[in-house]
Simulated scan of single mutants.
Amino acid sequence: MNPHHAIKQPGARLVFEVLAAEDPESLVTPHPARSPLSVLAALVADSTRDVDQVA
């Protein structure tokens, strides 16, 4: 079950549905700094935060 409200947190909700990550910030943690996956995870987390702020 998706813990994020569709209206208040659409970015976090989408990340949960697609990547099954309850906390978008947690995507960054398991990867070494400056690895391509770390950079991509940071972009996803930042984009999620931006979408949630606009909503």
Rank of each mutant, 00 (worst) to 15 (best):
D23N: 15
G11A: 10
A6M: 08
A20W: 04
R13Q: 14
H31D: 01
H31M: 07
M1T: 10
D52V: 01
V39M: 09
A41S: 15
D50G: 09
P32H: 03
A41C: 12
K8Q: 06
L14N: 04
S38N: 14
D50N: 13
A20D: 11
T29Y: 11
H4P: 03
S47A: 15
S35K: 01
A12T: 08
S47H: 12
A45I: 03
R34K: 13
N2S: 10
G11R: 03
M1V: 10
V18D: 07
A41E: 04
Q9K: 11
S35C: 06
S35A: 04
T48K: 01
D46G: 14
L40N: 04
S26A: 15
P36F: 02
L40R: 13
P36W: 04
A42F: 02
V44F: 01
A33I: 08
V39I: 15
A6E: 14
S35M: 00
P24R: 03
I7L: 07
D23G: 04
V28G: 06
G11F: 06
N2G: 08
D50R: 14
P32M: 01
H5F: 09
P36L: 06
H5T: 08
D50H: 12
A42P: 01
Q53E: 12
L14P: 01
P3G: 07
G11H: 04
